[in-house]
Simulated scan of single mutants.
Amino acid sequence: MARLRRTPPHDLDPAAGELYEKITTGPRGRFMVDPAGGLTGPFNAMLLSPAVGDPLQELGAAVRYRSSLGDRARELAILVVAAHQDSAFEQAAHEQIARGLGFTDEQLRALRDGAPLSLPDAGEAAVLAVTRALVTKGDLDDDEYALLGERELFELTTLVGYYTTLALQLRVFRV
């Protein structure tokens, strides 16, 4: 059962209202709004502290919409984090996106289960290997470090940290 009440926009204080507008009019659109107008997923908790929630959602927008990681590589990494963190919300939301990017049910199952997955694209295979190392070991050996460029590594480690944070918040607030 959810621990955090979804607050309709008319009940928000001005700072939370500004953040609500930023989230719902941004690239995520109204995807994260329930029928009563409350935010779903991790965004509802961000309204508790707009001073922290706004930079957090901005980081998420940068990771999702402004990084050099391709769409498939990004969703692949998010799904590895979601599976490792056992985050049903992240899993469901991002499996839907991944399907739209051409991931098969078999590939999604392998990501969910942490099973071996052979990917024909070398860049995606590298992202998979590096992300799995990051979530299981919290570090990379020299061979894993060499699989991606430093910019990609920076963006990927940021993505892993961001989605790990969301998974923790989703779990604590029982979203």
Rank of each mutant, 00 (worst) to 15 (best):
T131K: 06
S118F: 01
D105W: 09
A115L: 03
D105M: 00
P120N: 00
A115Q: 04
L117Q: 10
P116M: 03
A126E: 04
A126N: 00
A125V: 03
R112D: 11
A115S: 14
A126M: 05
A129V: 03
G123Q: 08
A110G: 00
E106F: 00
L134N: 04
V130A: 00
V127M: 13
T131D: 09
A133E: 13
A126W: 07
R109D: 15
G114V: 05
A126C: 04
R109E: 15
L117T: 10
D105P: 04
F103N: 08
A125N: 01
L108G: 08
S118R: 14
L117P: 06
A125H: 09
E124T: 06
R112Q: 14
G114A: 03
S118W: 03
L119Y: 07
D105F: 01
A115H: 11
V135W: 07
D113N: 12
L119D: 02
E124L: 15
A126T: 10
A125W: 05
E124Q: 13
S118V: 15
V130R: 01
A115V: 08
E106S: 13
G114P: 12
A126S: 14
E106L: 05
R132Q: 05
A133V: 05
V130W: 00
D113R: 12
E106G: 13
F103K: 09
A133G: 10
V135P: 11
L134A: 14
A122I: 01
L117F: 07
A126H: 04
P120W: 00
E106M: 00
V127F: 10
E124H: 09
D105H: 02
L134Y: 05
L128K: 05
F103M: 10
F103L: 14
D105V: 08
G123I: 07
R112E: 13
L108M: 07
R112V: 02
A110Q: 06
L108T: 03
A122Y: 06
P120S: 11
D121E: 13
R109T: 15
G123S: 02
L128T: 04
V135F: 03
R132V: 13
L108Y: 07
F103I: 05
L108E: 07
D121N: 14
G123L: 09
A129F: 11
G114T: 01
R112K: 15
L111G: 00
S118M: 06
G114D: 07
A110D: 02
A122T: 10
A122S: 06
D105C: 01
A122C: 00
L128R: 11
A125C: 04
D105G: 12
Q107N: 10
A122K: 11
A122V: 12
G102W: 02
D113E: 15
L111T: 07
A125E: 13
A129K: 12
E124R: 08
P116Y: 05
A133W: 09
D105L: 05
R112P: 04
S118C: 00
A129T: 14
L117M: 11
T104R: 08
E106C: 01
G123R: 12
L119R: 07
R109V: 12
L119A: 01
A126Y: 02
Q107F: 09
Q107I: 08
T131H: 01
T104H: 07
E106Q: 15
V130Q: 13
A129R: 15
L117V: 06
G123V: 06
S118P: 02
D113W: 01
G123N: 11
S118H: 14
